[in-house]
Amino acid sequence: MKTKFKIRRSDPLKAEPYWQAYSVEVKEGMTVLDALLKISEGDDPTLSFRRSCRSAICGSCALTINGFPKLACSTQILPIAKETREVTVEPLSNHQVIKDLVVDFTPFWNKMEKVTPFLLPADETRKEWVIKKEDEKAIDRAQKCIMCGSCNAVCNSLDVDPNFIGPAASAKAWRFVGDVREGHRKKRLERLSGEHGVWDCVRCVHCTEYCPKDAAPLEAIERLRAKAIEEGVVENPGAKHVLSLVDSIKRVGRLDEAAMTFKTLGFLRSLGMIPFGLKMEIHGKLPHPIIFLAIEGMKEVKKIYSAVEKRRKKG
């Protein structure tokens, strides 16, 4: 089947990126990477793109395909061509383009370096560690990451704040924080809870949705946050906010906005972080902090809290 490929190209020497169309004879089983190789080996050898393993494990070939990030090498053409008639291929978004489909990964690697990407064992001399299956499982998902950059490409926070640590590096960070052998957990969590750290994630779930390896970066972020709170790293707006909801549900079973905002904002105010406009607006629209009605069955909620607490203490 002849299929139209529309490829977003750019040449650093020419000013504007442009679309170029190619027609490729697609056979059953062909992937987008196969088509790109076919184009570059025939029609147009000047087309640049990264590739290596062609088996979805090296992370070289993540591209924006029909609008969303995918690994070119594991994306079958026929099913998508049938749906949309043509296949568009663009470089990953949220990344600077070098040439055609090749983007600059330097910021990606720099973020990795920021999370001190190696184990700092609690005991350097220990020969063999006993690692329980559940400990292995705790970091197994994050370890599936192939550093393809798809998550960072769709991360909504990164889009507005390029300094945000981002989903990929967060998954990497969890891989160490969650490792039973790690010796500098708290220090790591303190850094990760700082500016541009894990609390800046807006939970848009793009990363987990589009990760081609099911590494679930958002889950790693949630675990990092929970671990930070557990380790007492709570002097930041994110943790305060969480703790106030934990407290609110424990008291009344639901979100007591007035009390919660008060707590989080009180903290922000002490840091001089709330702008005037927000203060006004929040005051304008909040319910009067009268006595907030609790849900029915608060006893049950309290019992659940204490059961969870008990289990946590037992470890």
Partner: peptide, 17 residues
Amino acid sequence: MELERMGAVFSRDDAGK
């Protein structure tokens, strides 16, 4: 063993080895 000290986590048996 050295690979493990560097950070690799080889899959475990039931005893954690």
